[in-house]
Simulated assay, not measured.
Amino acid sequence: HSDAGSQYTSIAFAETLVLEGIAASVGSVGDAYDNALAESTIGLFKTEVIAKGNPFHPGPYKSVEDVEYATMEWVDWFNRSRLHSRLGYVPPDEFEAAYYANLSTPQPEPSPI
């Protein structure tokens, strides 16, 4: 997904996407609504992974591989273990398991009136 910048709307870029079998997704022009989630996630990433003293990589990053490994660790933690307020401070894995367990639990039949 991208904004409507000229590099993302060029014919050459569009042709490359088609050749790779990728569908383009371009946001609306003149607002930041499409970008809010990405900006929020990037901010969290910078605070939780890139900042000094982060738990995902001790010491300075010395290579691209260091950044890639820390990013993989953070994404795994964020998607599986991080306590999200939107989920009632329950880890995503636990929340998902409870959700599917609830779907498979037979619900009581409504009583006739």
Rank of each mutant, 00 (worst) to 15 (best):
G27A: 13
V67H: 07
Y99M: 13
R86M: 04
S6M: 05
E15T: 09
D66K: 10
W74M: 10
Y61P: 06
P60K: 08
V67D: 05
Q7V: 06
M72L: 14
S2I: 00
G21P: 00
R80A: 11
K46G: 06
I11V: 12
S85F: 07
K62L: 06
P92V: 01
F56D: 06
E73H: 03
A101G: 09
S81K: 15
A14E: 11
E68N: 14
A4L: 04
R80G: 08
A70H: 04
V90L: 11
N54L: 08
I50V: 10
W77F: 14
P60D: 04
T41I: 06
P92D: 08
I42T: 02
P55G: 15
A98R: 12
G59M: 04
G21S: 08
Y89E: 02
T41Y: 05
L44Q: 14
W74I: 10
E94A: 14
A51T: 11
L87P: 11
I22R: 08
E94H: 05
A32F: 07
E15F: 06
V64P: 00
E94M: 13
L37C: 14
P108H: 12
A24I: 10
N35I: 02
A12I: 02
A38I: 10
S28F: 05
I113T: 05
H57V: 00
E94I: 11
D76G: 02
P58K: 13
A97D: 13
V75Y: 01
P92R: 01
Y69G: 00
S81G: 02
N102A: 14
P92S: 04
A14S: 14
A98N: 11
W77Y: 15
G59S: 05
S85V: 13
S28R: 15
A36Y: 01
P106A: 07
K52G: 11
P55W: 08
W77K: 04
L19K: 15
V64I: 15
L44C: 08
P110E: 07
S28I: 11
N79S: 08
S6R: 01
Y100P: 13
Y100S: 07
S104Y: 14
I42M: 14
G43H: 07
Y89W: 14
N102I: 00
A24D: 04
K52F: 02
Q107F: 00
A32T: 12
A32M: 08
V18Y: 09
V29A: 06
I113Y: 07
